[in-house]
């Protein structure tokens, strides 16, 4: 198997807002359905391109793992300083 074949095709998860969407690639969806479409515009059919453009498909944002962010209690010496918990902030060497 070549390297190219092993690479998974990038897709988008979308919610159908058009009344009906039927594509040549076999998708048949109605309003409210959540479907997966190719992310590559060249691999999208005309109906997908059209509905994406007209707002008939709403891309659902993929959840990403964000690092937790919190604040460090402000002291009179460090007023307003905010940093990530995992920041490797070491005191500068004199």
């Amino acid at each position: 198997m070549s390297e190219k074949e092993r690479t998974p095709e990038k897709t988008l998860t979308v919610e159908v807002r058009a009344a009906l969407l039927v594509t040549r690639s076999g998708i048949k969806a109605k309003k409210g359905d959540v479907i997966t479409i190719p992310a590559d515009e060249m691999k999208q059919t005309g109906a997908i391109r059209h509905t994406l453009k007209s707002g008939g498909l709403k891309v659902i944002d993929a959840t990403t793992d964000l690092k937790p962010v919190t604040s460090v209690p402000a002291t009179p010496q460090k007023a307003g300083e905010v940093r990530r918990l995992d920041d490797d902030k070491k005191p500068k060497k004199e």
């Binding site: 807002r17 009344a19 039927v22 594509t23 040549r24 007209s54 707002g55 008939g56």
Partner: peptide, 11 residues
């Protein structure tokens, strides 16, 4: 064509 909600099919 760009109205939100219009149905769309491929030939």
């Amino acid at each position: 064509i760009s109205a939100n909600g219009i149905s769309s099919i491929d030939a």
